[in-house]
């Protein structure tokens, strides 16, 4: 039995127990079921699919966290009285190790929504991503940041 089927059965069970088959309650049941399946994954699931699911959810969590962080940081920069000294804009060429279109698209979108960076262009040979930084510390730090953070996670999801 696949994990998805287990989640559906658990959701139906939850709705039956609470006596409420509305969509919201079914969703709630599915969420609880998904958590239960994740906790008990060793007992009944093929490990591969779940590991992928865990990686996707870990990427999603990291993304939501970084998104909030980035919005707050931009907000703080915007309301600083002395704008000129707070800003150090630059366009940096970041070498890519991910190769497929889907991976590059995902990575570029993630970069745009994370602190202080905005992807501008990809080179023709798909080897370099041009990133605009709002508050650059050093070029190397920015590249290492992207390579160690999102690039690894994106690779894990697609491998």
């Amino acid at each position: 039995m696949s994990p998805a089927a287990i989640v559906i059965v658990l959701a139906l069970g939850w709705a039956a127990i609470t006596g409420n088959f509305s969509g919201l309650n079914l969703l709630f049941g599915a969420a609880i079921g998904a958590i239960a399946v994740l906790l008990l994954r060793r007992a009944f699931a093929p490990p591969r699919a779940l590991r992928k699911l865990r990686r996707i959810s870990s990427l999603a969590l990291l993304f939501v966290y970084e998104l909030m962080l980035s919005a707050i940081r931009v907000a703080i920069i915007v309301v600083t009285p002395d704008l000129k000294s707070a800003l150090r804009p630059a366009i940096v060429a970041v070498p890519l190790t991910v190769k497929s279109d889907a991976e590059i698209t995902l990575l570029a979108n993630l970069i745009t929504l994370t602190p202080g960076t905005l992807s501008i262009d990809v080179s023709e040979d798909r080897g370099v991503l041009y990133v605009h930084a709002l508050t650059l510390s050093t070029r190397e730090a920015l590249i290492a940041d992207i390579a160690k953070g999102f690039e690894i996670k994106v690779k894990e999801v697609f491998e």
Partner: peptide
């Protein structure tokens, strides 16, 4: 405010894309 205050196009884009999407 960011789109109004920041000095150039690319920096304004940071404000509009991040704070705008989150908002």
């Amino acid at each position: 405010i960011g789109v109004l205050r920041l000095p150039d196009l690319y920096m304004r884009m940071h404000a509009a894309s991040k704070a705008g999407a989150v908002g």
